[in-house]
Design a protein around this nucleic acid. Structure first.
Lengths: 244, 244
DNA sequence: TTGACGTCGAATGTATACACTCCTCGTGTA
DNA sequence: TACACGAGGAGTGTATACATTCGACGTCAA
């Protein structure tokens, strides 16, 4: 993230507002007022404006026609669509990587992360180091998109992936104990391997297909988990902003 | 566009800066300073900041780590990638439209625009009403993406389409007299028809394929036109910001 | 010569006062 | 009752002064 640098009021407000939005303190459609937030956070309107502007960039806020911001409304269908979108974009990235030919050293780097991911799995099917897996998985996907050689695509993927819940594993893995979810990680890892293999052998179409399936499984898992445990929406910070 | 409303200094600065950037007044990599621009435009720093913030949203400016903005660098390869990306996204939209089944009235609306597009073509191969075609074409693509039924996807498509030159016909058609370009419009219109037909008959895979081919032709045309007429980069406003 | 250190300045961060706009609500009149 | 009009207030737009930060540059000493 970029907000590890200097601590300014703008960054503090940005993080605080993002936290509150994802936490569900402001339901979708809520209008945010500069003056009110300035009082709440004990700072002036200026950094509040700046922070809201950046949250609009991130897609968490919408600008109103005549000034002001409202919290963006996300439905459950939106979340599923975001995952599908991510699959399409990553699919394009790996297709391009295969078609254009990824540099050997970059490919090796991906292989290394892949091996590290393997190390997260223990002997039992449900024995997985979630914490490590999450981080490595994010790293894996980042390196993968970089293989495409398209700065434009990479940038848009980063954007789309930041949409709430575009990567369900990132926020579900550490917080739930649902078996179906744990076991799906084994499947995911299989796909990771197949993906890298397809890129290496320059099979663009196949790589794209696998990436899409990969996202589709993530999508289906989230769908399943939520439908089986509707109370998760209240429990998991970040899911609380859902409208429906 | 949204900037037809009330005329504020922020909007004035936004439009002026965007114009200058696209015009090539600020080459990619140029850092923009608040004070300097405030003096130039005879307004205070506040609306300048606001305008730059929005230009960062649009993807024309990049934020620097410790504050400030630089003009984003676009290479010719970036432009081609942006077109490819647009093809992928629109492809996804029409696939979803076909798979999920688009509402009949919305589909009819698309058919209407399709017919209007037909009316832009005269009897001779090169006899095309560019002005009308451009507007209708943009409208056609907008309606098409709306058929997907995915608000998230539609939003990201609008974003990606706003990237400079993601829709080459929009800025080339009215300004050039290149024959190959004129005739390609006939091909494009063929694809439009096939696209709508595929959606109507619920052939998602086929619809997606056509949309991608559609963008690929746009890409190839732009590539061809620019390589044959490198001086266009200087002549056409908006192309001037290219770095290489 | 090179490196550490301190000063200065340029540029952004922040606070705040004031201006403007739009919406709401009440009042008046037909 | 219905509608036009106008005042008031809520909220954002804008200007500006001041604070803060970071980097450039020069100085000094090893």
């Amino acid at each position: 993230m970029e907000e590890t640098g200097r601590t300014t009021h703008t960054l503090a407000a940005l993080m605080e507002l993002r936290k509150r939005i994802l936490n569900g303190d402001f339901p979708g459609g809520t209008r945010l007022f500069e003056v009110a937030l300035a009082e709440t956070l004990q700072i002036s309107r200026t950094p509040i404006r700046e922070a809201m502007s950046r949250l609009a960039e991130e897609g968490l806020l919408d600008r109103l026609a005549n000034g002001g911001f409202v919290v963006r409304s996300f439905t459950f269908a939106d979340v599923l669509d975001a995952i599908e979108l991510r699959g399409v974009l990553e699919g394009t990235a790996v297709r391009l990587a295969a078609e254009r030919g990824a540099p050997a050293d970059a490919l090796q780097e991906v292989q290394d992360v892949l091996a590290q991911l393997d190390a997260c799995f223990g002997s039992a099917p449900r024995d997985v180091d979630f914490e490590a897996y999450s981080d490595l998985n994010a790293q894996f996907h980042t390196l993968l998109t970089a293989l495409s050689g398209s700065a434009v695509l990479q940038r848009e993927i980063e954007r789309a992936t930041r949409l709430p819940f575009a990567s369900p594993s990132a926020f579900l893995s550490g917080r739930t104990n649902i078996d179906v979810f744990r076991q799906s990680l084994q499947v995911a890892q299989e796909q990771h391997r197949a993906l890298v293999a397809a890129i290496s052998s320059r099979e663009g179409t196949r790589a794209e297909f696998i990436a899409r399936e990969h996202a589709r499984i993530a999508r289906r898992n989230l769908e399943y988990v939520i439908l089986e445990n509707p109370d998760l929406i209240e429990q998991v910070p970040g899911l609380a902003l859902l409208n429906s």
